[in-house]
Design a protein around this nucleic acid. Structure first.
Lengths: 172, 172
DNA sequence: CCACACTCTGCAACTAGTTGCACAATTCGG
DNA sequence: CCGAATTGTGCAACTAGTTGCAGAGTGTGG
């Protein structure tokens, strides 16, 4: 339902082909919307068929798409449409609750690993933050929005670290 | 991949039928794993066919399932299996980033509504916390786990409120 | 006792996303 | 220049989850 719009946003920022988009998803955009290249290609075709995007300057094998006026309209319309609240779906949370039916020690080890992962991701986001937005107070428009989404990534990682750490401490 | 196990956990706590399970999912278990009754029925059939659960004391139309030994095994095996890190998928985050391509005022209003929702949910969780776990320091085993998952719900709501509020303030 | 509402079960069709693979074009090291 | 690795595109089959609907059974107020 929304990957189309994620692609529109990314293509609005700069035209690109499928793989390039997939790479961008692995970085910024994908913090909050993971996608594989296969799915991206599938959706790109649909979007091109619907006239939301169009190939620019055919350079042979690789196709670069740009957003059409029709796509701009759709993007604006989507932003205004209301979005249902999203629920986090966490298998790990389930396991934490179920721990007493299995081997708790193994689960605790897994959680420790997960905390380490989140710390790494957090450090990565903080590096980006320092590099790209050293002085956030002056930001406006798109830059401000990008910064705030990155900020969301930071807060989310902090949530995970805090929660998992509390779990570990309670079972120490 | 995991709804089966969520159902096992819930049925382990107390045998039940499809609708009753759906109701439980709307409450505690579903904090981190939403599911509709239709899907629950579908999965229950599969699980019964696989021998993970079995109907208990046939009471006519409504079927109550309980976890079999085979199901217990599966539950324990699942807890030990490692889980891929989950990514939050947020359409709202995308919109925040895309705001400058549409009507920002409308989006800000929507975000305000969302904050209100999260505050309500947070208050609800805190009520549960006070009611069911007034003295968390003495908890052990399953009770402790349930408490800690509820605690995760609280932290998650706080994450949302904080992030969305920062966004609103930055665009005030 | 009968109409109406509610509970419980479930099917069908669909949409979104994943996994595994294949193949062409390009670049790059020897 | 040639073989190998990498980049870019994409199909096919599958799994998970959603939406919309329907019918059977139970209880309840007039």
């Amino acid at each position: 339902m929304a990957i189309e719009h994620a692609l529109l946003v990314s293509l609005r920022e700069r035209p690109a082909g499928g793989l390039e988009l997939a790479r961008r998803f692995d970085r910024s955009i994908g913090f909050f919307w993971p996608a594989t290249h296969q799915q991206i290609y599938k959706v790109l075709h649909r979007m091109a068929a619907d006239g939301w995007i169009a190939p620019t300057g055919d350079e042979g094998a690789r196709t670069t798409y740009a957003v059409t006026p029709r796509g701009e309209e759709e993007l604006a319309a989507w932003i205004v449409r209301s979005t249902p609240t999203e629920r986090l779906r966490s298998e790990l949370a389930l396991k934490m609750r179920a721990a007493s039916y299995g081997d708790r020690a193994t689960l605790l080890a897994e959680i420790e690993g997960r905390v380490a992962e989140h710390r790494i991701r957090l450090a990565h986001y903080e590096t980006l933050q320092r590099r790209d937005y050293p002085e956030p107070t002056g930001l406006t428009g798109q830059d401000l929005d990008q910064y705030l989404v990155l900020r969301g990534g930071v807060l989310l990682e902090e949530f995970w670290i805090r929660w998992l750490t509390e779990y570990l401490e309670a079972h120490a």
